[in-house]
Structures are given as structure tokens and as C-alpha cells.
């Protein structure tokens, strides 16, 4: 039962979280995106052994955040809230 750090709520059991996916820039506009680019975006992941960048959602507070986590040791390296534009 890993413990993940929600940037807003603090350390919580992994069962409170949902894995969203790898951070990827969405290729757009659709008209200028090749089949290969779109396929890569949908289906191909870096899936590294070692430090991985991951997007997670803390279901308790519904905030999305980015975590750097070592997939081999399960160690959490970093956790940060998504950037918000300045008011």
C-alpha cells in the first residue's frame, strides 16, 4: 500500500488515487496531425524503468497533479500541482 503525496491534502494511501497517464502534449489541430503522430499520442507510452513522470488524480479532492515516481523502487521523487495561470 504505497503512500502518495497529494500536493493539497498531503500523504495518503495509494487507494485514494487514480492514475491518469503519462504527460503528453495533445497534437492539434486535427487537420495537421499525421496518422502516426495521433497513434503515438493515443497508444505509445515511454513506460520507463526508473524515474517516470506520471499524472495522477487524488479522488478525495479531485485535484490532478504530476508525480515523478521510480517504477522500479516505487520511490516518489517529486510531486507538484499543475501550473495555474496567474490571477
Amino acid at each position: 500500500m504505497q503512500i502518495f503525496p497529494c500536493p493539497f491534502c498531503g500523504a495518503r494511501d495509494e487507494s485514494e488515487f487514480h492514475y491518469v497517464g503519462e504527460p503528453k502534449a495533445r497534437p492539434e489541430p486535427a487537420g495537421s496531425v499525421s496518422d502516426g503522430e495521433w497513434t503515438n499520442y493515443l497508444w505509445f507510452n515511454a513506460n520507463p524503468k526508473g524515474e517516470a513522470h506520471e499524472i495522477w488524480l487524488h479522488l478525495t479532492c479531485m485535484e490532478m497533479f504530476a508525480m515523478t515516481r521510480d517504477t522500479a523502487t516505487n520511490a516518489v521523487v517529486a510531486s507538484e500541482a499543475s501550473a495555474r495561470p496567474a490571477p
Partner: peptide, 15 residues
């Protein structure tokens, strides 16, 4: 709901 939340936070101005 989860999908809406994710896109709201990732693509739009959540405020």
C-alpha cells in the same frame, strides 16, 4: 465527471 474534471484542470482555466 472524472473526465470533465481532468480536462477542466488540464486544458481550461479552472477558475
Amino acid at each position: 465527471r472524472m473526465r470533465l474534471e481532468l480536462w477542466r484542470q488540464d486544458r481550461f482555466d479552472a477558475r
